[in-house]
Nucleic acid binder design. Structure first.
Lengths: 342, 342
DNA sequence: CCCGAAGTTGAATCTTACA
DNA sequence: GTGTAAGATTCAACTTCGG
């Protein structure tokens, strides 16, 4: 990076090592071993060593950014907080933090934590007084069904035919990012003809998407295997013509409403008694949204089936609350909640 | 906080000042002024002043946390990266970062950034080697329609009748958190009877939800107006009965039943043949509760792992008896035994 | 060739009690 | 402190295999 001229880059996308600090192996319930990211390039002796590494490349990035340029940095909780603090200390000016919500994350196999279902991106201008950075507000709005693009993006992880694999079927790069993520980053914050730098090029997703979208790119990669794979990959990419309208509409995720949310939001206090349409059966609501009867506990659906002696049951229409002597199906509470969703 | 005894707190929820650094006022497209957070308590002269403040209270928090205690810290991109780095530097061990997705965020009025639609929570154990922290995995799963709870939570901002307002209709506190958010935090990471500390009590959401869910709480608040409002608010809260705050329990909490007892009690006579779900493997029960195959003997778990060629196995769910041609897991015998126990 | 079942896999800081 | 054993634990997407 130090070889590049000062103030020459429009946008930087950086996906640095995450410093995962994994110890031992993790197995799925079916006893198979999780293929962890245990590459040498992700290992640092300490936080301070990682910080020194980060500070060096972030400072180098700042020098080569145009005054109107912006930088994107992606990470997980292992490293993103350190990177964010460094960005602020170096005088970068945060514009947004953006959450990449994975539609298909790896589950938590031991049941000891929440499913780690997102990564965080930080988007910064070069300095507080930097003016004139690119944000294609209307393109983002169009991409989001004419609503302002929010700071949480739902995008699947990289797999299928998009994922680069060797002859043996093994992943070419352990952490290849999905092109949809780069597509949104590049459409949001650059113009056609801009120069985009990726200092941790890896499998070259940034280059592939930049080329397709008519942006120039510079990729820096230390590992020759990765670099060659990226080169081959990008060679096959067809740039779109300027008047090509890229429309990757956001997949509207059908709002699934777990019953627990109804309790959590206070629409139904813990301890409320629900009854079935005949009032023959009843069950009590607990704080976690499960139901209890004299001899069982579980979801509204399971307990509904249980008291009927059936194999399945739609708890939303089966269970009712009693309001002024009248039965009201709990489904009306779900509808109330749905109306509030984005 | 320094007045509290060491290792006395089960859980801390902290919503510190955000260090917003707003300059000038922000106007909506219709020229009305946005009521921004511009209180004195949110002003810090520099990042390093904010860091010193953060380090002081985070260290004090670490002292009074039980070894098995956990801490939650919430913030936005203005401060959360600094807090996250500090937590790591102090030796806290991150369990998750969690994204609060706001279903109804304030739109971005200038069209120069993404709509800031989320805040970030960090959940930490007191140290890397801290074991036995509370995570009510099954309760979270119940709350989410029997799917693992993810690290992104969709919850509306605090408004309507929940929002505290003065006689003039003005917000009592500028950053009052929704009770639904605290509900999830408290149900996830504490048990009934636990002590929860909130060092930035504000309008007292933590106290209100803690009281309702049968947890003890300690609130610290410098501003007397806020403290009084919180006191009045919490006085009106009705605690749920102990039964109602029970949540779905983990299997680990159930009393342990050695397989030998099943044989001893005559639920399974010695000599019974057990099979795995595919009926590919079988083993015979001996009078001491061990299993034998052609080439090995040992516990239900050891032999299960052995016949599968796996490193581990839950024998209770792996082995089955054949009843009228159907497979029944031996776990039902354990449940039968558990039901008989005091 | 099609369809359903079965198997594989993904940036993961992933157990606990007791001897 | 350490070692051993009990036994709890997964979602969505893609690929492969068998009929």
């Amino acid at each position: 990076m130090n070889a590049l001229p000062a103030e020459s880059i429009d946008c930087i996308f950086a996906d640095p090592p995450y410093n995962l600090q994994l110890t031992g192996e993790l197995r799925r319930p079916n006893d198979s071993v999780v293929d962890a990211v245990d590459d040498d390039w992700d290992k640092f002796a300490s936080f301070s060593e990682y910080d020194a590494f980060s500070k060096a490349w972030l400072a180098a990035a700042q020098r080569i950014l145009k005054p109107s340029g912006t930088i994107w940095v992606i990470g997980s909780y292992h490293n993103i907080f350190r990177l964010g603090a460094q960005l602020q200390d170096l005088g970068y000016w945060m514009l947004n933090d953006v959450v990449w919500r994975k539609s298909n994350p790896m589950p938590n196999f031991r049941g000891k934590r929440f499913t780690n279902a997102h990564e965080t991106l930080i988007w910064c201008a070069r300095s507080q007084d930097a003016k004139g950075y690119t944000f294609n507000y209307d393109a983002m709005k169009a991409l989001n069904d004419d609503l302002q693009m929010r700071s949480d993006w739902l995008i699947p992880i990289c797999g299928g035919s998009e994922r680069l694999r060797g002859a043996d079927g093994a992943k070419t790069h352990p952490t290849q990012k999905p092109e949809a993520l780069l597509h949104r980053v590049i459409v949001a914050s650059t113009k056609p003809g801009d120069v985009i730098l990726d200092p941790f090029f890896g499998s070259g997703t940034t280059g592939a998407v930049a080329k397709r979208l008519g942006r120039h790119f510079i990729g820096i990669e230390r590992d020759k295997t990765y670099a060659k794979a990226a080169e081959r990959r990008i060679a096959t990419v067809q740039p779109s013509t300027p008047d090509d309208v890229e429309v990757t509409r956001s997949k509207k995720d059908e709002p699934r409403i777990p019953f627990g949310w109804v309790v959590e939001r206070g629409l139904l206090p813990a301890g409320t008694v629900l009854v079935d349409p005949t009032r023959r059966h009843s069950a009590k609501v607990r704080a976690d949204g499960s139901l209890v009867t004299a001899d069982a506990s579980g979801s509204i659906h399971k307990i509904g089936a249980h008291v009927m002696g059936a194999t399945a049951c739609n708890g939303w229409t089966f269970w009712h609350i009693v309001v002024e002597g009248k039965l009201v199906p709990i489904d009306v509470l779900r509808q109330k909640l749905r109306a509030e969703l984005p």
